[in-house]
């Protein structure tokens, strides 16, 4: 701070930029980060934060409960044996994030696309280094990243909690294998759910209708499959058309577990997931192929 009266306010005017521009990669990063903030309601009014907070609470609850049980009751060898029978496997804990996933895909994720279409931002984005393909890539990156956090954070926290409570995997090698399985399965399931959510949300410009489209796609298919298999006594292979449980079934198979539907071969589980991801991506691209020009 100057005290000799020499301080001045300078009009910097307009400055040229001769530095290096970040290019398409920077545009994708910036758009993905902006979308993440928008979806989580950061920098927005409190009402935009309600759904994301609800999803986080639902996602974390099972892990916190089981870690609490292990920490409060564990320690004694007999009690640990009992607890090992009660606490879920890592793949089972990941399955328990299904409620949070459905909440996120239905209530939160559609915001990533609908807001830009509603606000006219898409035409502005397409006037930047982004193309329709890289724009959608940024959206998938953002939504699948958030979904990965919903699956991964509780499971990784659970792994750490169980390890500290002496209920974790035996030895460093097993521990690393479990961690890798958690990461791989979480990322894959997140990408599949993100594509299903964005594909269904792309069908409309209205937020409420987008949420409805996502819920109808996921729960509608689930109900139809349930009726076919349970009520009409059709083949269990129809379960492959269930977009809610197939990613979770894939998680079980990655962990080497039998899963909920052991009658369906593992390669078919992977194929079903690839089918849902591919068809959702095709719908998304069909909706955006000529949008915003």
């Amino acid at each position: 701070m100057t005290t000799d009266g020499s301080a001045q306010i300078l009009d910097r005017g307009y400055r040229r930029f001769d530095g290096r521009r970040s290019g398409v990669g920077g545009a994708i990063r910036s758009t993905a980060w902006h979308t993440t903030r928008s979806v989580l309601g950061l920098g927005r009014k409190a009402r935009h934060k309600i759904a994301p907070v609800l999803v986080i609470v639902v996602a974390m609850l099972p892990a916190v409960v089981f870690i609490g049980l292990a920490v409060l009751l564990g320690g004694d060898e007999f009690v640990n044996d009992v607890l090992e029978g009660i606490v879920p496997l890592y793949s089972e804990l990941a399955r328990q994030s299904i409620a949070a996933m459905i909440l996120f895909t239905g209530l939160v994720a559609p915001e990533a696309l609908v807001r830009d279409r509603r606000d006219g931002m898409l035409s502005l984005y397409l006037s930047t280094p982004l193309t329709r393909r890289t724009y959608l890539g940024a959206k998938v990156l953002s939504v699948s990243g958030l979904m990965a956090l919903i699956v991964l954070v509780p499971t990784v926290v659970y792994l750490l909690g169980m390890t500290f409570a002496s209920l974790g995997p035996d030895g460093v090698g097993d521990w690393v294998v479990v961690l890798i399985r958690i990461l791989v399965s979480g990322v894959l399931a997140s990408i599949i759910y993100a594509l299903i959510s964005l594909g269904a949300a792309s069908l409309t410009d209205r937020r409420a209708f987008a949420s409805l489209a996502v819920v109808l796609t996921m729960l509608g298919a689930l109900i139809v499959v349930q009726i076919l298999v349970e009520a009409a006594d059709q083949s269990i292979q129809w379960r492959m058309l269930d977009p809610v449980n197939m990613p979770m079934e894939m998680i079980s198979r990655i962990f080497g577990d039998a899963g909920q539907y052991p009658e369906i071969p593992t390669e078919r589980v992977y194929a079903a997931n690839a089918g849902w991801a591919g068809s959702s991506a095709a719908v998304l691209w069909a909706r955006y192929r000529s949008a915003g020009a």
Partner: peptide
């Protein structure tokens, strides 16, 4: 945000 997307 748009300046960042344009590479700043």
């Amino acid at each position: 945000h748009l300046a960042e997307v344009r590479g700043m």
